[in-house]
């Protein structure tokens, strides 16, 4: 389905997170971090990972449970999600109403040379999320759907899963800080007023 009309990932992410509002965000390792740094700068309430692949969803669940009055959002790529796929079931069973998952699905491991992920062979993340117990899911293939996706991510009773099907383009690396302790401490300071 190599169409000429595929969404650009940075445009799609910008539509969801600019303006970002007061959501709490866990960003899975890889190109998603570049997307979020490009969109929000190094915002203290965007916790960016650079390892622990497969952990973004479960981390977001712990955050959502700890902050039930806030919206907790995980944004990650298809490769990162697939490594922790069973956390969809853990989240679906727990059903946190304030949890949203955004998967930027380019059907590639873009950090390691653009190898195809299993979503390129038809594995359907949104259907798996639905089967795992997510309350609602949405597959976004064109920019006209992004306003509805933004609304679902921010307001719909969770857990919800939004899959952005995006162009597997090669994007230049984005300079960012990889100090995880700094990321953790500034997140807590911004949210809780203490580290």
């Amino acid at each position: 389905m190599a169409g000429t009309q595929m969404m650009h990932r940075r445009d799609a992410v910008r539509a969801l997170f600019d303006p970002r509002g007061d959501v709490l965000v866990v960003v899975g390792l890889g190109t998603s971090v570049g997307d979020m740094v490009t969109t929000n700068g190094e915002h203290p309430l965007n916790f960016c990972m650079a390892g622990a692949m497969g952990g973004a969803c479960a981390m977001g669940l712990g955050l959502a449970l700890a902050q039930p009055e806030k919206r907790a959002v995980v944004i990650t790529g298809d490769g990162e999600l697939l490594m922790g796929l069973s956390s969809l079931a853990t989240i679906g069973a727990k059903r946190p109403a304030n949890f949203a998952l955004v998967v930027t699905d380019n059907e590639r491991y873009s950090e390691t040379g653009g190898q195809r992920t299993v979503t390129a062979d038809g594995v359907d993340i949104a259907t798996m999320a639905k089967g795992a117990g997510f309350r609602d899911t949405m597959v976004v293939r064109e920019e006209g759907q992004l306003a509805a996706a933004r609304k679902m991510m921010r307001e719909a009773p969770g857990p919800v899963c939004i899959v952005l099907k995006v162009d597997p383009e090669n994007l230049p690396a984005v300079a960012r800080t990889r100090d995880g302790a700094w990321g953790k401490n500034r997140f807590r300071e911004a949210l809780l007023g203490k580290i």
């Binding site: 973004a56 712990g62 069973a93 727990k94």
Partner: peptide, 26 residues
């Protein structure tokens, strides 16, 4: 207590970190 049944233990490590980000001990 907020009890979470995991499918695999590594989820619990990430969950604990997320809980701490949100101000809770786990």
């Amino acid at each position: 207590m907020k009890v979470v049944t995991l499918t695999t233990e590594e989820e619990g490590v990430a969950l604990a970190c997320g809980a701490w980000l949100g101000g809770e001990r786990s």
